[in-house]
Design a protein around this nucleic acid. Structure first.
Length: 432
RNA sequence: UCCGCGUUAGCUCAAUGGUAGAGCAUUCGGCUGUUAACCGAAGGGUUGUAGGUUCGAGUCCUACACGCGGAGCCA
């Protein structure tokens, strides 16, 4: 039943007669010759049906076969520079497996609403296939990077009893007799427990934010990878983030050139993603904004336009470190040289793609952490287990989180994050 | 939540307040090398919903629904 050969294996079968299976991507015809474009998930193949080379029934079938009809095709493989993919099939036989009548997504343009309504079919399109393959390669690069450096994958729970940073942005549910539970918005606190057991860990899974954010950079369900390392300070954390981004981008450039070409991605900025990246402090970043005519007050957090102005000053990802503690989370350690600053770092992607990494050195002192929890009005009883990490052999430690979909959007050069995940979940859409 | 724009054929879009059209898709016909092929023909409409102004509304007004873009917040 399974296909004898896939399109990406054809170079090994030139001159042979083979049978392939797939779907009709497009069709052109010129009287007594039909050009059927087969797609099978590995590539695209032009199948030539000459009237003289096949039976009357087969030629008639080639005339009737419609877009996205699944079929089996037999023919002789030949090299053909004029054809997509460089190979062509001289068809001798054709069998329809499942008809497709009036496939809604035509080869012409469509609006975004229509495409998202048909996301289950849209994923068959050439661009979407290319994006999904790059997403997969990025995920593999992420796992390879940590696995090769002695990290252990440490899976955090998806259902959690408490918020890591306030409850307004959480998806809530009833959890049997135990009251409310929530979908996780970060695995970080659990990763810290893992780092105390395994020294270097990473979590990688879906996270959820019920924020009413309606922008090209937000999903309510997205994937995040979060490494957490015992005995790392903020500088070690930044070194790792830098090496990590370079590895992901250079791996995709090497191995997914074909897909990037389908997306018509300009590679000049991606090729420059090599260490070292510029590192500027928050205070220096504020100076950059002021020099560019922005009315900005020290102590505020950067907005999207501010981030764009800062990242436009550089041609690589920028690391901004030491933010005002007031705009950052309770678990971040204060700078010993300036109590107003948190040992935090954000990494901004170039070309206006904004924040893709947020990280910090964590507060490792029990008494200070207790005080922060009080200052943020967080319920201490939910954090007792987390405080235990400081009661029993606390060590300096650091970590960061990388948003997978933002990274995919950046590397693929996409306008909107919704194309980076098979079925995007957004504030006004949870179907299909 | 706030600001702005939009909703017309299956899809993408036209249409000074005066007979709702085109391209693609579909169906039929033509073409032996097409590259979102091309050429010819046909079918296809409760103009988002509910009101209002007008001799006359796709077009103007009001409300609502849905969508898109942006802001805030964040990865």
């Amino acid at each position: 039943m399974k296909p004898e050969v896939y399109i990406n294996e054809l170079s090994k079968h030139v001159g042979e007669t083979v049978t392939l299976k797939g779907w009709l991507y497009n069709k052109r015809s010129s009287g007594k010759v039909k050009f059927l474009i087969l797609r099978d998930g590995t590539g695209y193949l032009q199948c030539i049906v000459f009237k003289g080379n096949v039976t009357e029934e087969t030629f008639e079938l080639a005339d009737k076969i419609s877009q996205e009809t699944s079929f089996e095709v037999t023919g002789k493989v030949k090299e053909e520079p004029r054809a997509i993919g460089g190979y062509e099939l001289d068809v001798t036989d054709l069998k329809v497996i499942g008809w497709a009548h009036n496939y809604p997504i035509t080869p012409k343009e469509h609006g975004i609403e229509f495409l998202i309504d048909h996301r289950h079919l849209w994923v068959r399109s050439k661009r979407q296939v290319a994006i999904l393959k790059i997403r997969h390669r990025i995920i593999k690069a992420i796992r390879d990077f940590f696995d090769e450096r002695g990290f252990t994958l440490f899976d955090p729970p998806i259902i959690t009893p408490n918020a890591s940073e306030g409850t307004s942005t959480l998806f809530e549910m009833e959890y049997f007799d135990l009251g409310k539970a929530y979908l996780t918005q970060s695995g970080q606190l659990y990763a810290e427990a893992g780092a105390m057991a395994l020294s270097k860990v990473y979590t990688f899974g879906p996270t959820f934010r019920a924020e009413k954010s309606k922008t090209r950079r937000h999903l309510t369900e997205f994937w995040m990878v979060e490494p957490e390392m015992a005995f790392y300070d903020l500088n070690d954390d930044m070194d790792l983030a830098e090496e990590f981004l370079e590895y992901i981008v250079q791996t995709v450039l090497e191995e997914k050139a074909e897909e990037l070409k389908i997306l018509e991605r300009d590679l000049t900025f991606l090729e420059k993603v090599k260490r070292p990246f510029p590192r500027v402090s928050y205070t220096e970043a504020v100076e950059i904004l002021k020099k560019n005519g922005v009315d900005f007050e020290w102590g505020d957090d950067f907005g999207a336009p501010d981030e764009t102005i800062i990242s436009e000053q550089f041609d690589k990802p920028v690391m901004i470190h030491r933010y005002p503690a007031d705009v950052k989370a309770f678990y971040m350690k204060r700078d010993p040289e300036n109590d107003k600053l948190a040992l935090a770092v954000d990494v901004l992607a170039p070309e206006g793609y904004g924040e893709i990494i947020g990280g910090s050195q964590r507060e490792d002192d029990l008494d200070i952490l207790l005080q922060r929890i009080k200052e943020h009005n967080l319920p201490q009883e939910y954090f007792e287990w987390y405080l235990d990490l400081r009661r029993y052999g606390s060590v300096p430690h650091s970590g960061f989180g990388l948003g997978l979909e933002r990274t995919v959007a950046w590397i693929c050069g996409l306008e909107h994050i919704r194309e980076t995940i098979p079925f995007p979940r957004m504030i006004y859409r949870n179907t299909p």
